[in-house]
Design a protein around this nucleic acid. Sequence first.
DNA 1: GATGATCTCCCCAGAACTGGGGATAACGCA
DNA 2: TGCGTTATCCCCAGTTCTGGGGAGATCATC
Lengths: 225, 225
Amino acid sequence: MSDLMAEITKAMGFRHYALVHHVDLKPAARSVHIIDYPPDWVDRFQARRLYASDPIHRASHRTNVGFAWSAVQSIISLTAADRSILAEAYEAGLGDGFTVPAHIPGELNGSCSFAMAAGEMLDHRQLPLVQLVGSFAFEAARKISRIHEPEVQCPSLTERQAECVALVARGKTDWEIGQILGIGQETVIQHVKDARDRYGVTRRTLLAIRALFDGQISFADVFGR
Amino acid sequence: MSDLMAEITKAMGFRHYALVHHVDLKPAARSVHIIDYPPDWVDRFQARRLYASDPIHRASHRTNVGFAWSAVQSIISLTAADRSILAEAYEAGLGDGFTVPAHIPGELNGSCSFAMAAGEMLDHRQLPLVQLVGSFAFEAARKISRIHEPEVQCPSLTERQAECVALVARGKTDWEIGQILGIGQETVIQHVKDARDRYGVTRRTLLAIRALFDGQISFADVFGR
DNA sequence: GATGATCTCCCCAGAACTGGGGATAACGCA
DNA sequence: TGCGTTATCCCCAGTTCTGGGGAGATCATC
């Protein structure tokens, strides 16, 4: 796969690529982690755990199609820290690049990025092709990486539990949730209790965030209507 | 957008399209719902709330790249009920089709599908193009659907507040947070209180989710380490 | 030197949540 | 028919959170 990626990267006129799930532990179970970036940068990336705060990764969590790194501020607003991360990457030899996000509900977020050497320009006419290649490359890597699946699936909630958790996420009290769903407060307490048990957490706040993270509820459930 | 989609659909040799978030309530706040399917089928789809159980939708939740409907059983295993749904769609005038999933963490799942009339064949050489068009069409629709957003500028938290909220999001109690940050429990209570005030919310659960939503804290803050 | 923002700490009353223990009824599956 | 799952309801003791009220210290800015 690495060889193939290297070849494609070169053919499209790029210098580096990264086909990764956004986690820090590279030897993690079945996560994809195929990189050809300047080693210097990879080390720093790992050391500072940028996998989640890196602006490019953050932006990739906000969209469905690829984007040029130079246009990242049209997706998220950059803090001073973000700018310094980008500057540092540039120093390390990464020029402009293009990142294709890869999201599947309940799975780790990932992306496929291609980068020029520092100083070189992106060829914008090629970007649709890069988008396509990135998507399929990630999907291919994902399929390969899960051939041996022992399959740890995230806990699932019953419909009622999910409804309660969505309302918990909205900051409703158990009594309010009971009113909204037309059931007793005690019942709500029970549902929330059961949901907490399934996730193995003891606080409703973490419950809500976990449920949000793996798609049992969505931001739309929280802010919708 | 409908006109544009109709044109593109035709140009690519398809008969129908559907650019949708996977929800039942079509007039929902900011969800995408642009469809040109046989009305008969749309009605039945709504009535039976297939948005969640339809095999095509289910399959689209399992992958990142588009797939031909005729190959859906390579993604999910079809039950008898699934087969009958597919057969029904065929009866209603939907032939083979191609669905491009669209997932963004924390948002509703969606997809962009194109379908032939019943009996016609997919041109497999076109599928990469369809993949590309589907992705961008969905992203465009998504962006348009949120132009009119009330546009509330998000409150910003002080560094200490953000640290406290991140730990709140991890389900820590105020006392635990105090231990972790090396400050008194009372101080933590104050920070959380101030953070709640800034967001104008009364529950820490909603505080955590709001802070997560607009990037004051990230999932990495919650699950990292 | 005043003003505002931030961080730190304290007290209290009432509301909300958590972790135990119960119970009944409906449903599908074997 | 029994077993498991789900949904509904109840009680209670103890903990945690929320919404009020304070206060002192630092720091930058005007």
